[in-house]
Amino acid sequence: MDFTHLFVELVLMPLIAFLVGLVMVLMLRKVRAKIERRIGPPLLQPLYDIVKLYSKKTQVSHGPMHEIAMMVALGGVIAMEVFLPVPGLNGLAEKGDLIVLIYLMMIPSLGLALGVGACANPNGSIGISRALTAMVAYDIPLMIVVAGVALFHGTTSLPEIIAAQQAGGMSTWGIVQTPVLALGGLIAAYAMLGKEPFEIYVAPAEIATGPMVEMSGKFMGTLFVMQCFQLYAVGVLYTTLFLGGGEYWISFLPKIFAVVFIPLAMTNVFPRYKTEDVLKWMWKWAGGFALAGLALVVMK
């Protein structure tokens, strides 16, 4: 592969992810405002927040681990993006497959977890304990879905999965071929976003935003940046697995926004589950659908 070309891809992919992610964050807040019959924030609000946080004049650090964790967390999400093929840009998708991607997605959370632990605030620790529990809740269905997809396509290479879905237009999309699996995946993706009713680990009124409790200034800014990447990654991953990936940006962007929009539209009407209820609900419903989908795949 041409090295320059690759380098450009490696720079472009996270950059696009960040920009699209900013718009997704805006959408998140706008949707919420509309549902609450408010006007909502201005268009540049996500950017304002991030710039403001980075330009805080005093910054509080709880030690080297706290700082390194921020770098690892941000680095993790950036690295994750180059393994997610988008229209025209395959990045390093050849060097790591779907499983690598899923595990790379855990790196930022783990890095963050270490940083939060270093903050020595029990609210943060409780938040991390709940976040990891939530991870167990949604990752099991997600992995069943991943197994189903990999089995269905006979590969774990993302470009090949996309190619297989694009082979016959919409009729070969994963959501058409394996609808039950897609439903399970959607629920898991919803929980991955960590919005109500699954936001057990933020719980502002209960544990003071959990992992974020000691995050100030650029630390918080890093988390805001990460949120952009993560929203984007969830959208692209789901699109890649079930919505045929993207041939052109013009058709790709609506898909990923749609994927993120569906949970966001629902989330505002919910209160919050208890930790154990998240587990039970996710295992029962998302896990149930995913297993049913997997069974259908195996039977085919």
Binding site: P204, V213, M215
Partner: peptide, 22 residues
């Protein structure tokens, strides 16, 4: 803060810990 006057219009949000607040 809520829909009558909507503080978020001007980019204001409630925060829960002093670390995050302005």
């Amino acid at each position: 803060m809520t829909s009558r006057f909507d503080l978020e219009r001007v980019g204001m949000q409630p925060m829960v810990t002093p670390r995050q607040a302005d």
